[in-house]
Design a protein around this nucleic acid. Sequence first.
DNA 1: TTTACTTCTTGACTTAGGTCAAGAAATCAT
DNA 2: ATGATTTCTTGACCTAAGTCAAGAAGTAAA
Lengths: 191, 191
Amino acid sequence: MVFDQIKKYYSNFIPMSDDDWNLLKPALRLVHLKKGEKLQSEGDICNDVTFCNKGLLKCYHIKDDKEYVEAFFTENEYLSDYTSFLLRIPGKLYIEAIEDCELVLLDYDTIQTFYSRVDNFQKFGRLMAEFLFIQISLRNNSLLFESPEKRYINFSKNRPDLIQRVPQYMIASYLGVTPEALSRIRKRLLS
Amino acid sequence: MVFDQIKKYYSNFIPMSDDDWNLLKPALRLVHLKKGEKLQSEGDICNDVTFCNKGLLKCYHIKDDKEYVEAFFTENEYLSDYTSFLLRIPGKLYIEAIEDCELVLLDYDTIQTFYSRVDNFQKFGRLMAEFLFIQISLRNNSLLFESPEKRYINFSKNRPDLIQRVPQYMIASYLGVTPEALSRIRKRLLS
DNA sequence: TTTACTTCTTGACTTAGGTCAAGAAATCAT
DNA sequence: ATGATTTCTTGACCTAAGTCAAGAAGTAAA
């Protein structure tokens, strides 16, 4: 059923007893998003963490009328504007569907309640934050210590699915270069 | 006394009862490091989180014989090679004293024990990971979306203390540019 | 205070990526 | 299919940062 995927995802982090699950399940909300629709815009306080059942989304922010992609999210990935979510401040991010999406949402208040009531869930929160920290550390080092060319090579290796599904100009933005530069990098790599 | 600072630090994140503190205190280890000495080298599995009572350290890694500074840590800051610490894998980081340091260490096993035994501590772990996530997100965005010049200006604003205490070539590395480039940026900014 | 060492600055040159603009290729809608 | 729109490529030119090398300035040690 429609919440199976997120249940399995949670189970990767903590043992999820039937009791825990039955407590959590009623709080989950299923949301559908058409390509181009936004889950969140700049200025919103991010009030949910989102699990992607199906589809593809991008997180980006806008500066000087230009889009800067910070991350892509696809099947069985967990996403949110975590900074806004945690600090309860308006975020700078847009979250937008690149393909039609089926998403599962869980709101801030429910999560906080679960943190205090279910010890396992507190642990899940820790593991999740730790996991996100490691993820973003890797990206950090990549941006700081690797050339755009190397970043593109790695991205192709690690996310061949996204190379297929995401327009090149968005990938360029994600890698921190212009579309023109990425086009030239690709040309260089062919020869 | 010598553990007052870390107690206060913990108290910023969670209420720290006398019982909790008396449980934790015996596990804390005081370590002194002379300028130039290393707390950790590449290949080590990071086995402690470290709190800085006094002094100044840098985290860096080495690639093609060049040093890449990832972070500085000074009084009342918490540091570790968190990725190595969490995943229990050999790290790529060196952690080295830029000034003589007084440090408080807490080892992995103790922390894990406390996570499972003291509910408050589980929460501390979550809050800490969340905090580190937010920190590194900010740095991430700075590296990706700001010019070296902008990064230097912000760094000067946010950490005027480090501008004074850290040699310029290390700051250059931290900002992701060569010492020559930083020297020229500074020159540009004066005129 | 003289010497040695470290750190910082400057110059000359190279290069990768940015910007702007035009056109080609691919995709989508009718 | 056809035309419209979006996406990708290419060219020309510019600029900031990298590299290499030399020397100045600052700091520490004898």
